[in-house]
Amino acid sequence: MNLLEYPDLEVLIMQIRNASGFDFSGYARPSLLRRASRYLTKNKLTLPQLISHLEPESDIVFDLMQEMTVNYSEMFRDPDFFIGVKSEVFTYLESYPGLRFWVAGCASGEEAFSLAILLKECGYLDRSLIYATDLNNKVLTAAREGVFTLSNVRTFSENYLLAHGQNSLSDYYHVSYNKAVISREIRKNIVFSLHDLTGDGVFNEFQFISCRNVMIYFTLELRQRVFRLLYESLSMLGFLCLGKRETLRYSGIEQNFRVVDTVLNIYQKIK
């Protein structure tokens, strides 16, 4: 049950913006409402109490922002996507002397690690650099460590096999203190850094951008702004990958792409 009503949420969004400069106004309201209510419940706060603590640069501002951003993922999530990337994208990129990949909204690094493993098995990892970004510093810290529970890794291993992995996922991690730690070889070509898709600009040019299951939390206006950023970050003939519930329709840039796969939502920039 939500503790907040939508008018309360608008007040909270304004207070967060005033205290931190981060603007949640373009995010879909139902998800924000659930997460803000959960934060109040978890911390045993009322809305007035929370607002009274939202001072610029305060710990509680950033703690609330971490709670209100979406951080769930799995390694090799949607295994057919990775099969499609290998067959329809990597074969096109194999002639490039150097490759730059961007995993936007990387959460705890699951997709970045999956991509690195796929590149390793295809022989491209040594000439690839993966930028993995998120606006949530807490999950980025976890991503840099590359540590997962063994129960999560069992799910990851099932996904890996369904994605036609060439080996065993256990070849890419070691177990320490009942945790799985992603190997140094897989992590070394990944750069994890803070980046806000809704407010920050272009920071490099990429042959491949994965921004999966991120747009569904944005309003149409914000999606269009983010799509423009992704378009400007792609090299000509670069590939853009979206989640299965997402689409380039109404993005304002759909005419600049050809559809590589309508089911997996893989697109290639053509102009």
Rank of each mutant, 00 (worst) to 15 (best):
M1E: 13
N2K: 09
L3E: 10
L3G: 05
E5F: 05
Y6L: 12
P7K: 11
D8N: 13
E10D: 15
I13Y: 02
G21H: 01
F22L: 14
F24K: 10
F24H: 10
S25G: 07
P30L: 06
P30Q: 05
R34L: 13
R35C: 03
A36P: 01
L40V: 04
K42T: 11
K42L: 06
K42F: 04
L45E: 05
T46F: 03
Q49V: 07
Q49S: 15
I51D: 13
S52Y: 01
S52G: 08
E55F: 06
P56Q: 04
P56E: 04
V61G: 02
D63L: 09
L64A: 05
T69W: 01
N71V: 06
S73N: 09
E74Y: 12
F76Q: 02
F76V: 01
R77T: 06
R77L: 02
P79C: 08
D80V: 08
F82D: 01
K86Y: 05
K86Q: 10
S87M: 08
V89W: 01
F90I: 15
F90G: 10
Y92D: 15
L93D: 10
L93T: 02
E94M: 13
S95W: 08
S95F: 12
Y96L: 15
L99S: 08
W102E: 05
A104N: 06
A104G: 09
E110H: 07
A112C: 06
S114R: 05
A116V: 07
I117T: 01
I117P: 01
I117L: 00
L118G: 01
K120F: 15
Y124P: 08
Y124H: 10
L125N: 06
D126V: 10
R127N: 12
S128R: 02
Y131R: 09
T133P: 06
N137T: 14
K138M: 04
V139E: 09
T141Y: 00
A142C: 08
A143F: 01
V147E: 15
V147Q: 13
V147R: 14
L150S: 00
T155M: 13
F156V: 00
F156H: 12
S157K: 07
S157P: 02
E158R: 15
Y160M: 03
L161A: 14
L161Q: 15
L161H: 14
A163T: 06
N167L: 03
L169H: 03
S170E: 12
H174Y: 11
S176M: 10
K179Q: 15
K179M: 13
I182E: 04
R187T: 04
K188H: 10
N189H: 14
H195P: 05
L197D: 03
V202E: 13
N204I: 00
F206C: 08
F208I: 10
F208C: 11
I209S: 06
S210V: 13
C211P: 05
R212K: 09
M215N: 02
L222M: 15
R223Y: 03
Q224V: 06
R225L: 10
F227S: 07
F227I: 12
R228F: 10
R228Q: 14
R228W: 01
L229I: 11
Y231M: 07
L234M: 09
L234R: 08
S235G: 13
M236W: 00
F239R: 09
F239I: 11
C241L: 14
C241G: 04
K244I: 13
T247W: 03
T247Q: 03
I253K: 07
R258M: 09
T262E: 13
T262Q: 11
I266Y: 02
Y267E: 11
Q268A: 02
K269H: 07
K269W: 00
K269Y: 01
I270C: 12
